[in-house]
């Protein structure tokens, strides 16, 4: 062997040696995740459906890996296409932080929450609705998603918030709702007319430090976390974890929360009973420079 070849072999051996830990690590993580696949956490219960993670191996690989990644960390092949400001990165399932929850901020969502998100998709992002999948397949995918984070091994989902039955919408309630919007200052981010242009809007960042805009009610896009009145109630009472959108459950009473729902509906460009009633009210946008409301 001439000395040049020897040096090359040496280099190859060294490179191989250095690469070894990386390889081992990859194996460990796969090994670890495989272990989690066989734990009770890697099942889901939606109504009387039971989801099984193993059954989702193929569908996940086929439909979700491109964005959410083989390891569930949100770094799929196409993820970097979205890695421009104001695009939403695919969710990193290893941290188990979810936007759409019926459970309090800082807790795991329920199986139903994740199931609903998969079927609904997340508007204003690249997460499509997977509503052509069978219910069983979606339940299996929920179970699969739960095998990615150690949190599912040690934590239980939060206790879903209680949503009282929706009262009748009235003009008084809409007006009271505007007072809540004013008092808790949703307008700091969403703007006095809900156009997503509040004084803090331009500086907002998500938990990864990426720019993010508040929802613009006047544009009328679908909410990410469901379109019903109860969904809207849930959105501001649990917050969208991973984003600046906080939970208000400590400071808005259930009755007031319904008032706020009715007021928010008047900001959207849809025909609703709330919007009809608001016409008669002649509500003026709140004045952000008025002295702060006293409690």
């Amino acid at each position: 062997m001439n000395s040049r070849l020897l040096r090359l072999t040496n280099a190859a051996v060294i490179v191989g040696f250095l690469a070894l830990p990386a390889l081992v690590q990859a194996q460990i993580s796969e090994y670890q995740e495989k272990q989690w696949l066989d734990t009770p956490a890697a099942t889901s219960h939606i109504g009387n459906l039971t989801g099984n993670a193993h059954a989702a191996t193929e569908p996940y690989r086929r439909y979700c890996t491109v964005c959410h990644g083989e390891l569930g960390d949100g770094n799929g092949e196409s993820a970097y296409w979205f890695d421009t400001p104001l695009f939403f990165k695919p969710r990193d399932f290893t941290t188990a932080v979810f936007k759409c929850r019926s459970t309090p901020t800082g807790t795991l969502p329920t199986d139903e929450d994740i199931y609903d998100s998969i079927g609904r998709g997340l508007d204003r992002s690249n997460m499509p609705p997977w509503n052509t999948f069978s219910a069983q397949m979606r339940a299996d995918l929920v179970a699969w998603i739960k095998h990615y984070s150690p949190r599912w091994q040690t934590e239980k989902p939060g206790e879903p918030i209680v949503i009282p039955p929706e009262p009748e919408v009235t003009a008084e309630r809409i007006k009271a709702g505007q007072d809540v919007f004013n008092r808790v200052q949703c307008w700091k981010c969403h703007g006095v007319e809900g156009r997503g242009n509040g004084p803090s809007a331009s500086t907002l960042q998500d938990d990864q430090g990426r720019p993010i805009l508040p929802y613009n009610f006047a544009e009328g896009g679908r909410f990410k976390c469901g379109t019903s009145d109860a969904d809207l109630y849930k959105i501001f009472m649990t917050g969208l974890d991973g984003t600046p959108m906080p939970s208000f459950s400590d400071n808005i009473k259930p009755e007031e929360a319904w008032d706020l729902v009715f007021f928010l509906r008047t900001l959207q460009p849809f025909h609703t009973k709330a919007k009809e009633l608001a016409k008669g009210l002649n509500l003026k946008p709140i004045n952000p420079n008025a002295p702060p409301p006293s409690q």
């Binding site: 309090p104 800082g106 808790v184 200052q185 700091k188 917050g239 939970s247 208000f248 400071n251 409690q295």
Partner: peptide, 27 residues
């Protein structure tokens, strides 16, 4: 007399879980 949102951001895998709650005046 202004609304804050308090948003601690623990690192993933530490055992601490982040949260995000608003505190309006008088909360």
């Amino acid at each position: 007399q202004t609304t804050h949102n308090i948003h601690p951001l623990p690192a993933a895998g530490t055992g601490n879980i982040g949260w995000n709650k608003s505190q309006p005046p008088g909360a």
